[in-house]
């Protein structure tokens, strides 16, 4: 891949990273609450805008990241390498961030690092690429960050995928924190959130 193939990153890297991070922080602090992206950066295929925002705001040379086979190509790896300096990690167990299509969620969750009893923060953050947030069914969320309950139905989630997230929540305080990245918005389910599946 040559330099001319590279897509630009954030237009204003400092400001755009700051406002993107606040959106991610807000999403993590209010699970299931879908937040619009405050900025967009050019999106190399097959990523989407929210996943790029997360990558450009959080990755750097200290954070090995993993890509699902469907998302893995030279263009993406080159894009992340140029704009963030983050190393691609082929071994999913060692990745701090994992990007994958939502269809892979159930499979990916069981391989990600969940941290240790003494350092539960040393766990991976999962970024699931979803088509949108207005699907039928879904889950009812409760726990820290949610006043009463919150219904959440990102597209592409299967019963298996929700089961994987339920199992993840049972590991608390260990576990993976999941960001759902859509075409123009994002939401999160940290490990502290309790899930109840709803009928579709």
């Amino acid at each position: 891949m040559s330099l001319t193939d590279l897509a630009p990153g954030f237009a204003d890297p400092v400001r755009d990273a700051a406002v993107s991070f606040r959106t991610i922080l807000d999403a993590m602090a209010r699970p299931g609450d879908v937040k619009s992206l405050p900025v967009t950066a050019p999106v190399p295929a097959p990523f989407n805008a929210a996943a790029i925002c997360v990558a450009l705001s959080l990755l750097d040379p200290d954070t090995p990241y993993w890509l699902a086979p469907d998302l893995r190509n030279d263009r993406i790896i080159g894009h992340f390498s140029f704009h963030t300096g983050a190393p691609f990690e082929a071994d999913i167990h060692k990745a701090q961030f994992a990007f994958f299509p939502v269809a892979d969620l159930a499979r990916v969750m069981k391989d990600l690092s969940i941290g240790t009893d003494e350092y539960p923060d040393r766990s991976a953050t999962a970024i699931a690429l979803v088509p949108g947030f207005d699907s039928a069914g879904g889950v009812r969320l409760a726990g820290p960050g949610i006043e009463t309950t919150c219904d959440f139905a990102p597209g592409g989630m299967t019963t298996d995928a929700w089961n994987a997230l339920e199992r993840n929540a049972m590991l608390f305080p260990l576990g993976v924190d999941t960001i759902f990245a859509g075409p123009d918005s994002l939401a999160a389910i940290p490990r502290s959130t309790r899930l109840t599946q709803l009928e579709a």
């Binding site: 922080l25 993590m28 539960p120 923060d121 766990s123 960050g145 924190d177 490990r191």
Partner: peptide
């Protein structure tokens, strides 16, 4: 982000 995900840790 990790601090928010594990409240109080």
């Amino acid at each position: 982000l990790k601090a928010v995900a594990v409240p109080g840790y």
